[in-house]
């Protein structure tokens, strides 16, 4: 079965990103697919590469990236939510003349249409938020 996940909260502040990741891992371990994880609202902060995490704590953005790499999961940061909150990839940064970008490896910026598409195409869409 193909799952799509919607993550509405940032890392650390709320457990939602953890729950989504644990669900994804469990689903993959059972032979299911995770077609896409879409990050909305403060969830876009999961995709920053500038987080400096204490060594004894889980590194949430890196954990997502690793999952994506090993299992071909599409990690999509919503462009509208990301622009509001200052999460930019190199192209977006150039386009808005910001001089810096901060999107972590393994993530990409995409439109809301990608979430709707996931909702239509995946067998199940699960929402993790606050």
């Amino acid at each position: 079965m193909q799952f799509a996940l919607l993550v509405n909260e940032g890392p650390y502040q709320h457990q939602a990103a953890d729950s989504a990741w644990h669900f994804a891992r469990a689903a993959l371990a059972k032979g299911h697919g995770i077609s896409r994880v879409f990050f909305y609202h403060d969830g876009v902060y999961n995709g920053t590469r500038l987080g400096v995490v204490p060594q004894d704590e889980r590194h949430i953005p890196e954990r997502w990236a690793l999952l994506a790499k090993e299992h071909d999961v599409d990690l999509v940061i919503c462009v509208a939510a990301a622009q509001r909150r200052g999460i930019l990839d190199a192209a977006e940064s150039r386009r808005h003349g910001k001089g810096a970008d901060n999107l972590a490896e393994g993530f990409r910026i995409g439109g809301l249409g990608q979430l709707i598409e996931s909702g239509i195409e995946a067998d199940r869409l699960l929402v993790f938020g606050d």
Partner: peptide, 19 residues
């Protein structure tokens, strides 16, 4: 909070998908 507004933004955008 911004939840209500961003939810509405998603709906208004997604409404174009013909569902």
């Amino acid at each position: 909070s911004l939840y209500a507004q961003e939810a509405l933004e998603m709906l208004l955008m997604g409404a174009a998908f013909g569902q």
